[in-house]
Design a protein around this nucleic acid. Structure first.
Lengths: 354, 354
DNA sequence: GTGAAAGCGCTAACAG
DNA sequence: CTGTTAGCGCTTTCAC
């Protein structure tokens, strides 16, 4: 008691219980892990152990346990940007299911920085996480390849590395984009400007763009390189401003904007607010990715919604399958989930522009 | 090589390097930890060790290291709700500074569930995190008290447990609320309705309410219990709907709404959109907590902004101070940061209601 | 200049 | 039914 104020409190260990009871650590370990009966230990002894453990407030040192067992019941989640509600929701889906199986989830954000991504993967490996779920930056795949090489359980989400036998859970970005363009076309759009993020190495962006291109061709809409504007990911606001100035200007006169993610769409809204632009009277707006605010922005925004919780759930399922089976799983799965077009107010193109 | 396909790849350990070089593990450990010169080890030997380590792609097992060292260079962050952008930004501030000092940040969300909060604290302790930063649910303080009792380094953020000698970083919620009411009063508000979250055990809510009450008194504004509406935290949308129906109805006819957090304000916007309510013509709206969308919602929303990154930075500073000094710090600090009223469009109350 | 040995806290194999 | 021994991978005396 007198020692309470100074220094570390030195947690009680297995040995403390064993000693104070005059039994061996082995016995205590067995009892505490529920293998008491299994090993035929006197139920009376078991009770004494349990009681003592509670009395001394014993908590196993998971470091020691992990070291011995070779597993930690921890899984790591590396997201590109934790402040994006997209990932927060996915994380929820993962955590719920992981918890039910006795696994803890630790989340870290790579901030779209491939260097940081590598470090985080390394960190989780060094700390012996049992598996990883990653929304990769797709800029330096060395660490991902190493995971594969080393047979380390992991699942990619959101973004996919093509042509590789790797577990992944993504949505059908191509189809989602196609449906978006269909909707715009049905509302009379003739000249749709596309806002996408650059650099364009992200599979999500690529697929959305190709879906956009295919659909504009199908509907025989205007098609020219000018209509596709790349926005540097680290200056979305300024980039979108410039892009919109151009797309809305006399030279182009686009009648609709397809924003390839929620940040781009939000920036469009911001532009509209600050420049007195009316949506959809002056221009239609459709977003890939739905976020809460699109429900009560002005106007409400039509968007391609992704099944966020489901992405998380499928990913953790895949991962647990792999972790729980001793044999390395040879066939990896690529799960592709459908998107859902949520129609609101932002795409009613008026007569004049038809 | 043939073994690559089957089973765990068995990482290379210190011993592997030592054996393949015919030296001892001790030596390898020293060299790899930069204590080579210090221990007078042949610089040639050092080079060989370093080279071999790289060749075998050696990564220290942090579990073993942590077990031996009694520290893990890991700090845990437990937030109430990871999907709230508020915490995402705070986390960023923490992570940056922590990284600079060689500490890794792991984030978990308690989802405002005190049970889960306890489990997470326990988990971080079991895994020997070196310190904790917590936005507590304030519903069951046992685990927090235990941390204190055990001299475990931790810092509370956002919410504070009053009257206790505990490290904390919060904002001046009372003053922030007061300034908010000042602003509303200056714009002609006479009858301000307050929307707050219930149950009301959160220090943030309490302080915002008391600031509100003090200021309404100062300005001699209408004051009655009816004007304060409690919204159950788990049904914000419905609760806000009912509250607004009441506050806007003939019985009360409030001319302004002070939403005590961003979720409540967002729900007000949603209500306004769905019911054709005009802000600020029909009613003024002011939010405690600023979020991005308030910049381009319709109308833009005046809000009390908090210095999010700074909260994180101060918290990690406090924590590192405590972790890095061997002697337990006796005097804990309570840091209170100022808020900032960001004036936008939602509070221009028209003449008619003055 | 270098290495042997001990031990962090835990569990599994094997004895008795 | 219970205990002994060994070892996970690392660092730290202390001895040569």
């Amino acid at each position: 008691m007198a020692a309470k104020k100074k220094g570390k409190p030195k947690k009680t260990s297995l040995a403390d219980i064993a000693n104070s009871l005059g039994v061996s650590r082995t016995l205590v370990s067995m009892v505490l892990n529920g293998r008491g009966d299994e090993n035929g230990i006197n139920s009376d002894t078991q009770k004494r152990v349990l009681a003592k453990a509670k009395e001394l407030n014993y908590k196993p040192n998971q470091l020691a346990r992990g070291l011995r067992l070779g597993r930690t019941n921890t899984i790591g989640l590396i997201v590109a940007d934790i402040s994006n509600p997209f990932y927060a929701t996915v994380a929820r889906g993962i955590e719920d299911l992981a918890g039910q199986h006795g696994f803890r989830l630790m989340v870290c954000s790579s901030d779209e920085d491939s260097q940081k991504e590598s470090e985080l993967i390394q960190m989780f490996r060094d700390r012996q996480a049992d598996g990883l779920i990653i929304s990769t930056t797709q800029q330096n795949n060395d660490e991902i390849m190493a995971l594969r090489e080393d047979n380390y359980p992991f699942v990619l989400i959101d973004r996919h590395l093509e042509g590789l036998d790797i577990n992944s859970v993504t949505v059908d970005n191509h189809l989602g984009a196609t449906q978006a363009v269909d909707h715009l076309a049905q509302n009379g759009a003739k000249k749709i400007g596309l806002l996408k993020i650059s650099p364009t190495h992200l599979s999500t962006m690529r697929d959305r763009v190709s879906g956009f291109l295919d659909a504009t061709k199908t509907h025989m809409l205007a098609s020219s390189p000018d209509l596709i504007q790349e926005i540097p990911f680290n200056r979305v606001k300024e980039g979108v401003y410039e892009a919109l100035e151009y797309l809305l200007g006399d030279e182009v006169k686009a009648d609709a904007i397809f924003a390839a993610n929620n940040n781009l769409a939000a920036a469009c809204l911001e532009y509209a607010r600050e420049n007195g632009l009316n949506i959809p009277q002056d221009i239609a707006l459709l977003s890939f990715d739905d976020v809460r605010m699109f429900k009560f922005s002005y106007p409400t925004i039509t968007a391609v919604a992704q099944p966020l919780q489901e992405i998380g759930r499928q990913a953790i399922k895949l991962l647990l399958d792999e972790i729980l089976t001793k044999e390395p799983v040879v066939t990896k799965k690529q799960i592709v989930l459908p998107t859902d077009l949520v129609i609101r107010e932002s795409c009613r193109i008026p007569e004049k522009s038809i």
